[in-house]
Design a protein around this nucleic acid. Structure first.
Lengths: 385, 385
DNA sequence: GTGATCCCTGCAAAGGTTTGCAGTGAAGTA
DNA sequence: TACTTCACTGCAAACCTTTGCAGGGATCAC
């Protein structure tokens, strides 16, 4: 490798001690200048701050964390960062965290349960809590890990742990009812990953709704929850003879539409397709995607709030000098269910059993993009099914 | 909030000391069992390991970092995590890092230069180095920050710093030549963010290529590098009367196509569109997108390699007990340029000046998705322009 | 003038780990 | 036997910060 070099080496790390020396005070005063300013004389404070500024001092968060037990970081473990479902969630979580003076570290697991576990361990000591988004590992492992670091689970229900859920069951039901209303009787459900909670919920709700509406539901899958996964299953969809499909997510729906297109099957004229998530893209494809909008932003914000709340109540590594041993720390484990919304666009149309000129019953309109999703709160058991 | 509580509080953190007590050795032996196993007696080792396993001990990385100066983390600062251009880069970086026993923390800046700076500071002490991807802040600030923590810059050229660049200039040139070859003479360039290095490179190269081919280049922008940004500029494109467009990235191209579609302008019949990046999606839109493929995976891997290499040479917080003061650590600042590839699909077609039945000269085919991109290495000055 | 109060600051321990140095005992060598 | 070598382990300092405690002045009331 051809290489150029510069001789300005990495700056010597300037510590609290350097600032103390420069400003002629004890290190504890410097420390207080940053972590408890009201305890130090205004004059001293400005002097110390000036010196700190001058030397380019920045508190070492690792050292601080070592003694306070709080890193002011939160970890965000994501099943697949390439899935556009997640970025809005990440952004919302980051923004919420920033307001509370926290930083967010995102880690991607590639849908790999092993990576999930490893990452929780790796993050455990470097963050004050972890948001587990659409985890693929087992519930029992999650519970076990939650003993190591405060956890909030998103898109998965784990008894005894704080969870943020989106009511995809209700969304799937609405989607199926919409399709039945359009005159579809043969409907396929494109399943996602087997270990996905969302997948199970959708499947159950869709089955119930189909039965109730006199339609037949064919489950295809599990599939990879990606465009490719959707594309690959197009042939199977065509052969199955259904006239409508509810896909595990928008990505699969978009892939499926492309796949059907490649086979010469037209959407929605021959097959109607419904997605889930309402990613930004679903407004830009042709046809525009009918989809179940999930309140991802709200989920991110809520999850951060729940984590920080639980975290504040029971600071980690609490040295609690005075408190007795058997303090019996109680963790709050609220479970929040956020509503979803069916957004009807152009990828669904009349099916074989449609009555002619039948007016649509479902309201047609855009999802409120910033809609917070009305939270429904319940104890774990009340939500459990 | 209705709340359920569980009484299993957060596990008491088990430290090296607990393991030492349990296995009847000194803490230093426990430490060595993990960080220098060959120095401890096999029997002792297994005993210690058993106790550690038993108690669920995990080394505290923060404490370890405090003394070794190495966290085994690397930070990845991303302009916009919602841009599908980045996930492949992130994934590649993560995978490469994992092989070297490093973890990656991703942070999103929302294209906000202030957030970028703040995040570098926040990460500085918690990581061994930072990958700055498509930074929006000024070069001088980047240089300044690089004195605080080892930096590798991606998609931006900063003299004196290690950079991973993609040859978008060459890509833009190929795109313009492709369009000219198709018979287009009025071409628009949809600019991206003003502070983007890529943007400047593309603009310069496109202008040169257009001039050389006898076409007129209209620059529209700057615009937000998103679907929305592309969608919004559709009207302007139509009014400008050009027959072809090169967009800053695929997202904008896709948004533009949707916007043109909404205006009743057909692609590629009336307007040809070329994107940049070759995101997965560009294969699934209709029409499939002609685009300049950028080797994002290779960029991520290369960046990690460069960071780790530089980092190994000059460990941070080097206490170097014996070494003299004026050690003059030299940092390697190789700059790597990765090649790009024009992938011709369906969003470009003959223009007003096309000769009838003219055979295509450019090769038509898929981009090699896993293609490493042939790296060209040069000193900073050689690449600078 | 004495004592109490208050604000500010310094002292020193603590947090979990690594690591140079020294010590121990056993094995090997002369 | 005496000495060296060697493998292993313990000791204690160090990393950078926070924080309970106590000390030192100054101010104030009596």
């Amino acid at each position: 490798m051809t290489v150029a070099t510069s001789d300005e080496g990495p700056a010597v790390p300037v510590t609290i001690r350097d600032v103390a020396r420069a400003s002629g005070v004890h290190i504890s005063t410097v420390s207080r200048t940053f972590s408890a300013p009201h305890l130090v004389n205004p004059e001293t404070r400005v002097r110390v701050l000036a010196c700190a500024e001058d030397l380019g001092y920045r508190p070492n968060r690792a050292a601080r964390a070592l003694i306070t037990g709080r890193t002011h970081n939160i970890g965000l473990i994501i099943a697949d960062i390439a899935n556009p479902f997640f970025p809005p969630l990440i952004k919302a979580a980051e923004s919420q965290a920033r307001h509370r003076d926290y930083h967010v570290f995102v880690a991607d697991t590639n849908e790999d349960p092993t990576a999930e576990e490893e990452l929780v361990h790796a993050l455990a000591k470097q963050v004050d809590g972890v948001l587990l988004c659409s985890p693929r590992m087992s519930n029992s492992l999650i519970e076990q890990l939650s003993r190591e670091v405060p956890l909030v689970v998103v898109n998965r229900q784990v008894t005894g742990l704080p969870c943020v859920l989106m009511d995809v069951g209700q969304g799937a039901r609405a989607a199926i009812e919409h399709l039945i209303g359009l005159g579809h009787r043969g409907i396929a459900l494109l399943g996602g990953p087997r270990s996905s909670w969302t997948n199970r919920e959708m499947r159950r709700a869709a089955a119930t709704a189909a039965r109730g509406g006199g339609a037949e539901l064919t489950v295809l899958g599990p599939n990879a929850p990606t465009e490719t996964g959707g594309f690959a299953v197009a042939e199977q969809v065509r052969r199955s003879g259904v006239s409508a499909v509810l896909a595990y997510n928008d990505l699969m729906a978009i892939g499926l539409i492309a796949g059907l297109d490649a086979l010469g099957v037209r959407v929605p004229q021959e097959v109607s397709v419904v997605g889930v998530d309402d990613i930004a893209l679903s407004r830009l494809t042709r046809p525009k995607l009918t989809t179940v909008a999930t309140p991802t932003g709200a989920a991110g914000r809520t999850a951060v709030d729940m984590l920080l709340q639980q975290d504040i109540e029971s600071p980690r590594g609490a040295r609690s000098p005075g408190a007795g041993t058997a303090r019996g720390v109680r963790r709050t484990t609220a479970q929040v269910m956020l509503q979803t919304d069916l957004v009807i666009r152009d990828s669904t149309g009349p099916g074989p059993h449609a009555r002619p000129a039948r007016p649509l019953t479902a309201s047609r309109g855009p999802a409120c993009p910033a809609g917070p999703g009305v939270p429904t709160v319940a104890t774990g058991d009340a939500v459990a099914s």
